[in-house]
Write a protein that binds this DNA or RNA. Structure first.
Length: 572
RNA sequence: GGGCCUGUAGCUCAAUUGGUUAGAGCAGAGCGCUCAUAACGCUUUGGUUGGGGGUUCGAGUCCCUCCGGGCCUACCA
C-alpha cells in the first residue's frame, strides 16, 4: 500500500467557480483520489479556499460586508458546492486559518534565517480616495502608445503594449475612478528566488514524465531574459497574514501582510494540519504527510492545477520549501490542465457567460457533469464546452451505453427469473473470451488512471461498458431462455456481475451512480477487481437484488435549447 | 515585441515519440436483434493531417516559412 498526497489548486474566494475552474484542478484531482483509495492506497486529498488579496477585499466591499465575514460565507458556499459535485476532499481548508497564518510566518522566518529574504524600497501608486496602494492592473488611464482610454497600469488591452502605471495619461483608480493618486515609497520583502535558480533548475531537470505544459512554463521563467527574478512577498493590505518573522515581530513591516501567492500554497500544508486538528489528532498525523524526516519519505505527492498556476507551483512554492532548509516534501508530479472554453468563447463571470457550479447542479446531478467534464478534460490543449456535445455525450454514454445495459439486464432477469441472481448452467467459451477481453481492458484502464491520462481512462471505461452490450447481443439470453434456461441463467448471472464490476470501476467518475448500483445489487463489497474473472462471480446464485430506476435520463432538444439560451450571458 | 502550446474525418479526440494502408466515439448510410431508457449489435461512407518548401530510405511527427486559434510575459489570482 502506497501513500498518496494529492492537492488541488485552491479556488479563489471571490465568487462561485465555473466549470472550467472545476475541471482544471478539483475534479481531476478527485478522480485520482477516488481511484487511489479504491486501489487500497492511503490518500490525503487537500483543497481549500484562497482568501487573501485585493480582489477579496473588493468583493467584500461590493457585498457590503467585512472581509472576514464575506470570506466565511463564501467558504461555506464553495464547500457546499464541492460536496454537491462529490469532491472527496479529506479537508477543505481556508488560507485565512490560524494554522496557515502561523506556518506562513514560520516559513518567512526560516527563509530570513537562511538569508533569502531581502528588503527593498519601491515606489507604488497610492490612491487617497481608496485609502490603499493600487496594484498596477487597478490603475486605468489612456495608453500613451495607442490612445486607448481604458488601458491598465500593467498592459494596454487594446495594443497589448506592456506599461508602467506612470506611463498612463490621466491615470485613475479602477476601483473608485478617483484621480487623486500619488506615488509613495514603500518597503517590501523579496524572496531571493534568483539565489535558488540553479537548485530549482536542477530539480526541474530531474523530473521525468511531467506534462510538457508544466516543464516548458517552468523553463521559460527560469531562463527567459535575466533568468528567475526575485519576488515581492508582502503587500500593503489589511487582509492577509500579518508579516512576522516566525513568532517575532518584523520591524518596519507592522502594517503589511504577506502576498497571497506566498501564503496560498503553504495552505496545502496548513490545511493538512487543519484536518489533523479537526480530527483531534496530534501534529504527527499531518507531519507524516509533509516532513520527509517524519514519515513522508515514502509519500507520493501529486498536484493538480490549471496552466496559470504552473509558475507558482514549479518555482515559487518550491523556492519556499527548498529555501526553508527543512525537509518538507516537494511535489513528485504536477498535472496541469489547459482551459475549458464555453461555446466559442471564454467563461465570463462579469458577463454571466457559461455554466457555474451552482447552476450546473440546479440543472442536472453531479455525475452528468463529472462524466462530460472528465471525458473532455483539456489535457493537450484548450477544449470547448458546447451544449450539443454535452447532450450527445450524456445521452449516448451514460443513458444508452451504461444506463440501458443495467435496465435490460435487471428487467430481463426480473421477468424471467425473479429478483435474484439465477442458478444453473456453467460458463462457456463466450464467457471465457469476455473475461479475457475485460481483463485486458481493466488493465489498460488502470494504466491510464495511474498515469493520470484522464480522457484515455474515460475512453477505456466506456469501452468496458460497451463490451457488456456486445456480449449480451451475441449471447442473446432472450433466445436461449426458450429452449435452454440454464444457458440464459449463466448469461444473466454474469451480466448482473458485470453491473457490479461497472459500479466499482466507474466509481471514481460516477460516485452517485456507483452507489445506486451497488445498493440495488445489495453488494456491500466493492473491492477493486484485481482478478476480473473472480470479480465476475462475486454475486452468487440466489443473491437478491432490486431493479433500480433508470440510472440516467436523456437531455431533450428543448432542454438543450433552453439552457443554451439561458447561459449565453448578457451579451449573448 | 518575446516565449510556449495548438491546428488531424461534419463534431470531439487518438496515433506506442521518425516506421507499413493515419485510428476511435458521435453524427450519416445499410443490415440485424426484440431483453432494454425508440435502447443494443454488426457492416459501412467520410482525411492531399491549415498552406507552401526542406531534411530523410521513410514525416501527422523534425527544420524553415506563411496563415489561423490560445496561453504566459513575474504587482489579478
Amino acid at each position: 500500500m502506497a501513500r498518496i498526497l494529492i492537492t488541488s489548486a485552491i479556488p479563489y474566494i471571490n465568487g462561485i467557480k465555473h466549470l472550467g475552474n472545476l475541471v482544471g484542478s478539483m475534479l481531476p484531482a478527485d478522480l485520482y483520489a477516488r481511484y487511489m483509495r479504491a486501489r487500497g492506497h492511503e490518500v490525503m486529498f487537500i483543497c481549500a479556499t484562497d482568501e487573501h488579496g485585493t480582489p477579496a477585499e473588493l468583493a467584500a466591499a461590493k457585498a457590503g460586508k467585512p472581509v472576514a465575514e464575506y470570506c466565511a460565507e463564501m467558504w461555506a458556499v464553495q464547500k457546499e458546492l464541492g460536496d454537491g459535485f462529490r469532491l472527496s476532499f479529506d479537508k477543505f481548508g481556508r488560507s485565512s486559518s490560524p494554522q496557515n497564518r502561523r506556518l506562513t510566518q514560520y516559513f518567512a522566518g526560516r527563509l530570513a534565517e537562511n538569508g533569502l529574504i531581502e528588503e527593498r524600497a519601491e515606489r507604488q501608486v497610492y490612491s487617497n480616495a481608496d485609502g490603499r496602494f493600487l496594484p498596477d492592473r487597478y490603475i486605468e488611464g489612456t495608453c500613451p502608445n495607442c490612445g486607448y482610454d481604458r488601458a491598465r497600469g500593467d498592459q494596454c488591452e487594446n495594443c497589448t503594449k506592456q506599461l508602467d502605471p506612470t506611463d498612463l495619461i490621466d491615470p485613475r483608480s479602477a476601483i473608485s475612478g478617483s484621480t487623486d493618486l500619488e506615488v509613495r515609497e514603500t518597503t517590501h520583502l523579496f524572496l531571493r528566488q534568483s539565489a535558488l535558480k540553479d537548485r530549482l533548475d536542477a530539480w526541474i531537470d530531474a523530473q521525468e514524465g511531467w506534462p510538457i505544459l508544466t516543464t516548458s512554463i517552468a523553463k521559460k521563467w527560469l531562463h527567459d531574459g535575466d533568468g528567475l527574478q526575485d519576488r515581492g512577498i508582502t503587500r500593503d493590505l489589511d487582509w492577509g497574514v500579518p508579516v512576522k518573522r516566525g513568532d517575532a515581530p518584523w520591524p518596519g513591516m507592522e502594517d503589511k501582510v504577506f502576498y497571497v501567492w506566498f501564503d496560498a500554497p503553504i495552505e496545502y500544508i496548513a490545511a493538512t494540519k487543519e484536518w489533523a486538528d479537526g480530527e483531534g489528532k496530534g501534529d504527527g498525523a499531518w507531519r507524516r504527510w509533509w516532513r520527509t524526516d517524519e514519515g513522508a519519505d515514502d509519500v507520493r505527492y501529486v498536484q493538480f492545477m490549471g496552466k496559470d498556476n504552473v509558475p507558482f507551483h514549479t518555482l515559487s512554492f518550491p523556492a519556499t520549501i527548498i529555501g526553508s532548509g527543512d525537509p518538507w516534501k516537494l511535489v513528485d508530479f504536477i498535472k496541469s490542465f489547459n482551459y475549458l472554453n464555453y461555446d466559442g468563447g471564454q467563461f465570463s463571470t462579469s458577463q454571466g457567460r457559461g455554466v457555474f457550479m451552482d447552476q450546473a447542479l440546479a440543472i442536472l446531478p453531479a455525475d452528468y457533469w463529472r462524466w462530460w467534464l472528465l471525458s473532455h478534460a483539456p489535457e493537450s490543449s484548450d477544449s470547448e464546452f458546447t451544449w450539443e456535445n454535452f447532450q450527445a455525450s450524456v445521452n449516448k454514454d451514460l443513458a444508452d451505453v451504461l444506463g440501458n445495459f443495467v435496465s435490460r439486464v435487471t428487467k430481463f432477469c426480473r421477468s424471467r427469473f425473479g429478483e435474484a441472481v439465477p442458478e444453473g448452467g456453467a460458463p462457456g467459451a463466450r464467457e471465457t473470451a469476455l473475461i479475457a477481453d475485460l481483463s485486458a481492458r481493466v488493465r489498460a484502464y488502470e494504466g491510464h488512471m495511474e498515469a493520470i491520462e484522464v480522457r484515455k481512462a474515460a475512453t477505456e471505461l466506456r469501452a468496458i461498458w460497451a463490451a457488456g452490450n456486445e456480449y449480451l447481443q451475441e449471447a442473446a439470453p432472450w433466445a436461449a431462455f426458450k429452449d435452454d434456461p440454464d444457458r440464459a441463467a449463466v448469461i444473466i448471472r454474469l451480466s448482473l456481475n458485470l453491473i457490479r464490476l461497472y459500479a466499482v470501476l466507474s466509481r471514481p467518475f460516477l460516485p452517485d451512480a456507483a452507489t445506486t448500483l451497488l445498493d440495488a445489487l445489495d453488494a456491500g463489497d466493492a473491492a477493486w477487481p484485481e482478478d476480473v474473472g473472480a470479480a465476475l462471480s462475486a454475486l452468487p446464485p440466489g443473491h437478491g437484488f432490486t431493479v433500480p430506476d433508470n440510472l440516467f435520463r436523456k437531455i431533450t432538444d428543448d432542454e438543450r435549447a433552453d439552457w443554451q439560451d439561458r447561459f449565453a450571458g448578457t451579451r449573448g
